[in-house]
Write a protein that binds this DNA or RNA. Structure first.
Length: 644
RNA sequence: GCCGCUUUAGCUCAGCAGGUAGAGCACCACCGUGGUAAGGUGGGGGUCAGCAGUUCGAAUCUGCUAAACGGCACCA
């Protein structure tokens, strides 16, 4: 007999060799139905596991969010099996679960799997699932697993790349696979899954490796969740800045004019202009000196900076001017600001010296990376470089963070994560070669974050080639992670450009550079704003703040024009809609264009000098006199349309 | 850049079997229009992404190129 201790401290006795599923059934049939896996003496175990010694047992059910991973890992297993059925020659590669669902990578000698074949593969998966209770899942060491899968060199490499000590070996008749977490051995309830797309994926995530065919899908425990997931994807599309950008006439990209080269239409340009004015004012207040520097420079500048050696892949090819001069479109602004630093001898009294610019840069992004305003080939970075003495780093770092938080508050940005981005130790050729400096600057950044008590996560291989970064990661409507803001520590370029300042001791010293982008690039930032506001901009950012509509075009035209002129005088962005259309038509358009305030005026308003307003998204109307309205909208703008 | 998919009017999309193109919205004209989400009638508009091929004949079949989209890789 074995003694099983349950989470409520109750102890039950069972026959030696009892399976976890049997225990679950004994406790309650409904529990057994919902059970996904168990933790037995702190080891995650599948339900088919036999218990041969006393243990603490926790059963995990489908109610727990993390059980979803086990479900998806299980589907990945059956997908792999289905692919093998689909084509005997398939070589199976990476597989498993991720945030959105599950996937299986395979390599089929006879050709690529196409999207049309997904229904066929789906049927095969269903067939496999219908063969009940044949799946056996056993925990084993990596070494054992390597022996079992020795015939598939890809699987062996995968197993070797794992950071865990154990995997689960899953056997279904003569088919074997491994997973990182226990599978559902009572998989007969699995019904709610969907294969979504076929894509390419490099083996082990390295573009130098072979590309496998990835089939991805998603799965849930209930039909409702699966349907909600589908709905969520639809909603995401309605937040997509590319869709809204067209609906609201904000920007366009025309491939015939140039992929990745966006055109800002008047309304999008207005939003951008407001953002630009805002951030420049904010930075000037914070002690930054704004400059303008050229987008072109002699290639030698980027040879000195190290860009040509470490960043060439992302740079446009140099322009050969025919007389030996090579001009380069700049991919970053730092060398330009270094030139400004070098313009004069600098003293310790000048530090921290803060140079800022809305600097236009060009990067030759890979065609597959381009996306609306999020990834472009010409972008304007809200760039700033502070030159500091060593002992000023900490303070300046804090100042930048403080500025960043203020800006986030004004734009109502709440959903982000801090990421400390280090270089990849295993792949140092991408970075400047100076181990000591890397160690030092990485630990300084981490120290500063720890001191501030801010939460962050660490990522190797995400650093700039010249130094580690603190990145602010946000998510796009489509769920991709993007870097918005960044603060970077750079000991390298001051060295390469031999920057100096005269210290209090009269000797030359080397400054350190802090690179920082608060709102990142205007392109990405505005795309982010479009998505979080869903195109319904707060009044201070709205390209058109007020839309004025007469009840009758002829009778009320003069009054509409008077109000328009009054509001314009107050600096408001107003449009008077005097088109030959009915009032209702105009109101509808005002709403679909998401204009914050719609003013409707007729006889009543004209007589009393009032306006009747309707706010975007509300049906309620309110009549007030013109000056009260001006007061109202002005305070709305002044507090960034925040409620608090 | 790689894999998959897509590309028809300004926009959203029909055109499923090769026989020289359609709808709704938008645009233009005329008529109409008084209180909070689309008034009516008529009209203009397309080398069916580009190039080549198969065919008596190609939006439709084949190949190449480009771009968009979903991933992978890369990244602000």
């Amino acid at each position: 007999m074995v003694k099983i201790t349950l989470p409520n401290s109750e102890i039950k006795e069972y026959q030696d060799g009892v399976t976890i599923l049997e225990i679950a059934k004994n406790i309650s049939p409904s529990l057994a139905k919902k059970a996904v896996f168990a933790t037995a003496n702190d080891i995650d175990s599948p339900l088919n596991k036999s218990i041969t010694q006393d243990c603490n047992l926790i059963l995990h059910t489908s109610d727990e969010p993390k059980s979803l991973d086990n479900l998806r890992a299980t589907l990945s297993f059956f997908l792999g099996k289905a692919i093998k059925k689909f084509d005997q020659t398939a070589v199976l590669g990476d597989h498993g679960f991720n945030d959105g669902g599950f996937f299986y990578d395979s390599d089929i000698a006879t050709g690529q799997i196409s999207a049309d074949q997904l229904p066929e593969i789906t049927k095969l998966v269903i067939n496999e699932l219908n063969q009940n209770n044949k799946l056996v899942c056993v925990r084993s060491s990596i070494d054992e697993a390597i022996t079992i899968f020795k015939e598939n060199s890809y699987q062996v490499e995968l197993l070797k790349s794992l950071k865990t000590d154990y995997v689960y070996i899953n056997t279904f008749e003569d088919y074997k696979d491994f997973s990182l977490i226990p599978l559902l051995t009572n998989y007969q309830n699995i019904k709610y899954f969907k294969l979504l797309f076929v894509a390419g994926a490099y083996f082990l995530g390295k573009s130098s490796n072979k590309m496998f065919q990835r089939i991805s899908g998603t799965a849930f425990f209930s039909k409702k969740e699966l349907e909600e997931d589908e709905k969520k994807r639809e909603i995401a599309r309605s937040h997509d800045h590319r869709v809204l950008g067209q609906q609201l006439d904000l920007f366009f990209v025309n491939p015939e004019i140039g992929a990745g080269l966006p055109y800002w239409l008047p309304k999008g340009a207005t939003i951008r202009r407001i953002v630009e004015r805002y951030i420049i004012d904010k930075e000037v207040d914070a002690g930054y000196q704004h400059v303008y520097t050229p987008v072109l420079a002699n290639l030698n500048l980027y040879k000195t900076s190290g860009h040509w050696a470490h960043y060439r892949e992302d740079m446009f090819p140099p322009m050969d001017m025919g007389d030996g001069e090579l001009l380069e479109l700049r991919p970053m602004n730092c060398p330009s600001h270094i030139a400004i630093y070098k313009y004069k001898p600098r003293s310790y009294r000048d530090l921290p010296l803060r140079i800022a610019e809305l600097g236009m840069m060009h990067r030759y992004e890979k065609s597959g990376a381009l996306s609306g305003l999020q990834r472009v080939r010409e972008m304007t970075l809200n760039d700033g470089h502070t030159f500091v003495a060593l002992e000023q780093i900490q303070d300046e770092f804090k100042k930048v963070l403080k500025l960043m938080m203020e800006v986030y508050r004004d734009f109502d940005i709440k959903d982000y994560k801090f990421r400390l981005s280090y270089r990849d130790k295993a792949n140092t050729e991408k970075y400047f070669d100076d181990d000591q400096m890397w160690e030092r600057s990485q630990s300084m950044l981490k120290g500063a974050m720890d001191e501030l008590g801010l939460e962050y996560y660490e990522a190797e291989g995400e650093a700039a080639f010249y130094g580690p970064k603190l990145d602010v990661q946000t998510k796009t409507a489509m769920g991709n992670e993007e870097t918005m803001s960044t603060i970077q520590l750079d000991f390298m370029q001051p060295e390469r450009f031999k920057l100096t300042y005269v210290g209090a001791d009269g000797n030359d010293h080397r400054p350190i550079m802090i690179h920082r982008g608060i709102i990142g690039t205007l392109e990405r930032f505005v795309s982010y704003l479009i998505e979080i506001y869903m195109g319904a901009f707060p009044t201070w950012l709205a390209p058109i703040q007020v839309d004025i509509i007469p009840v009758n075009n002829d009778l009320h035209q003069d009054y509409v024009k008077k109000i328009e002129a009054d509001l314009k005088k107050e600096g408001l962005r107003v449009q008077a809609d005097l088109r030959n259309e009915k009032m209702n038509y105009k109101i509808r358009e005002s709403q679909t264009q998401k204009i914050p305030y719609t003013i409707i005026v007729g006889d009543q308003e004209k007589l009393s000098g009032n306006v009747t307003i309707r706010r975007y998204g509300q049906e309620k109307q309110e009549t007030l006199n013109e000056s009260s309205f001006i007061e109202l909208i002005k305070s709305d703008i002044a507090n960034f349309s925040r409620e608090d």
